[in-house]
Design a protein around this nucleic acid. Sequence first.
DNA 1: GATGAATGAGACTTCATTCAT
DNA 2: TATGAATGAAGTCTCATTCAT
Lengths: 199, 199, 199, 199
Amino acid sequence: MPTALQVQNPQLGGRERILVAATELFAQSGYHATSIRDIARAVGVTVGAIYAHFASKSEILLTAYAQGVERVIKAVDDATATADEPWERLEAACRAHLDLLLYAGGLAQVVVRVQPDDVPDAAADLVALRDRYEKRFRAIVSELDLAPHIDRRLFRLTLMGALNWSKTWYRPGGTDTATIARQIVETLRHGATTPQAAP
Amino acid sequence: MPTALQVQNPQLGGRERILVAATELFAQSGYHATSIRDIARAVGVTVGAIYAHFASKSEILLTAYAQGVERVIKAVDDATATADEPWERLEAACRAHLDLLLYAGGLAQVVVRVQPDDVPDAAADLVALRDRYEKRFRAIVSELDLAPHIDRRLFRLTLMGALNWSKTWYRPGGTDTATIARQIVETLRHGATTPQAAP
Amino acid sequence: MPTALQVQNPQLGGRERILVAATELFAQSGYHATSIRDIARAVGVTVGAIYAHFASKSEILLTAYAQGVERVIKAVDDATATADEPWERLEAACRAHLDLLLYAGGLAQVVVRVQPDDVPDAAADLVALRDRYEKRFRAIVSELDLAPHIDRRLFRLTLMGALNWSKTWYRPGGTDTATIARQIVETLRHGATTPQAAP
Amino acid sequence: MPTALQVQNPQLGGRERILVAATELFAQSGYHATSIRDIARAVGVTVGAIYAHFASKSEILLTAYAQGVERVIKAVDDATATADEPWERLEAACRAHLDLLLYAGGLAQVVVRVQPDDVPDAAADLVALRDRYEKRFRAIVSELDLAPHIDRRLFRLTLMGALNWSKTWYRPGGTDTATIARQIVETLRHGATTPQAAP
DNA sequence: GATGAATGAGACTTCATTCAT
DNA sequence: TATGAATGAAGTCTCATTCAT
């Protein structure tokens, strides 16, 4: 008696199906508001079945989080692989970041929505994962030709904030991610008062 | 046997004391991770006593949230009252925003930490409150002399994201809020590649 | 809507009633085989109500255990207060020990039935309590005129074992506790091969 | 990937290995505190594998218990086979009993640690097994030249209690089992006030 | 024989909330 | 206003057991 979800993803193993559902729920509602029951219901199994695959709720979160980070890293790496010019690389990275953050069923939203403090058990690991990802952006930012008075760290954090905050206001059907990424980078590069540069 | 908090704020009524404690806890741990018991313990009263002042947990949150919004609005209004030049007004507003967000015991952090979806009962009200505050920034931004190709809404959201994200990385003792505000606004105005303008 | 138990002990507070029921259940079935539900059902309240009085299952056990030890100590103290002759004092102590162990609704049975290892949380405290009681017997035994080749510690442990084992085989209506105590002490004093001493 | 235990007992079949592990765990932690998972983990197999050999948890316990009883009976029979004098036979039996109870990895401890009531399914069988063993001691005691006023049943139960209680206080490295057995029997025979008899 | 996934019941505990006092 | 006891639902997790492979 396969459930809807099983039919939907017939090829996925039990562990994967749990992870998919959990990732989405954690991204939508946060860690505390998502119960193991919720996850079990979404997958179509008993609560006990969850524990055949994961030792604890925090382990599920950690696994989902790690997977999310890994995929964003890969997406950013892929996106930047084809560009040479530093600002182009940055824009490509932002576009990839937004795509995963806003579209793909919570894949990366977990990373933004769940705060390490929410999961004491896994806090240290979560921070480490988050750092791994930030290193990517640190590298990209380090190649930019910023004016000397600009604090590169603060520049990067400003960018990350601008990007991640989009989860708060973005609605499908509105401005697309490519456009969002372009304007954010464009503004941070030349400022909002400078007339548009020739393409 | 008055608790530390009671001694600290001897002039505050029961309702106020609950609100102070709740604000801080909600800001630190979020809505779901904060229990009525936590609040009662922090205030030094019984759980039942809380219900003499508030009808429900969501009402406490809503009240704290509203208070937070009110204070940020007032802080921003005060800060912008003394400046005429639009970009100066913006920077003053950002400084005030950061001050409340980062320093003052969670006064404004609730607004950033708690998402309307966390509290179905009060979601609509929370959104309305958030909007009230955003209107302030919308007004300030509308006075800016932005280049015509800049989407003012996206500009504002970029700024808000940059500011609010600071809660994630800010540590007391590091760069002060005035400096943070100045660089963020500077960057958004002239871009990070433009040599510094004369003060 | 008072339950049978409430009617039975109308004067007891909630905490006391829980303790009475828990003591009996722990004594009968042991720590692990007794669930909070069992206790709640015996008292006639909800499971949650238990937690208004005790922080955890182990705290209930610890409290019951402590109460049991306290009462046995008091019983032994009372029983030995009226006797001067060391062997009479010992016999009186044994009689008191057996009375509480075998008759009074588990009051002291907890101490014998539950092993410290069963309750990791409280193991240290349980051992300390058990020691407090054993000190009583150590004192009484130290006054006896034992032959020099007798190890007093082993003598005491032999006695305690003989007494406590009675919980295993004792059935109401059989030999009464006074007789049991007399013969055990008699045998340990003069041996089972010596013809009975004149009373 | 054989586990330590498998290497340790390479000749044992699956059933035997389960029994060895279960015996030790039941003896150490009791019936309720030992889970099938614990046993499986100790043996190094899956939970399901246990059910290829035993129909239920209580069946494992019953088998382990029966094995324990059988071995103690055999040990006592062997020990008493070489002695003729009744008190010597008793002392030899006690020594054998203590050896199995205190040393050999729980072989006989199960019998003392697990109470029939703990396992409703097997309670009757457990009592029957316990009785089989007690018959041995009943026989040995019946040969003793006790004074007429001594209740032989109570004498035997006193002895069993003294012996079994040792599990509570015995620590390896302290008094050895032979000495313990000698003093207990000596005390029960001649009393603790009688100067030592010539060997 | 053995595995791994699953079940359904039940474990302890915490939650928001109510209410008589 | 405030307390303390109680409720009922829900939380995470473990249990003995089953069964297709």
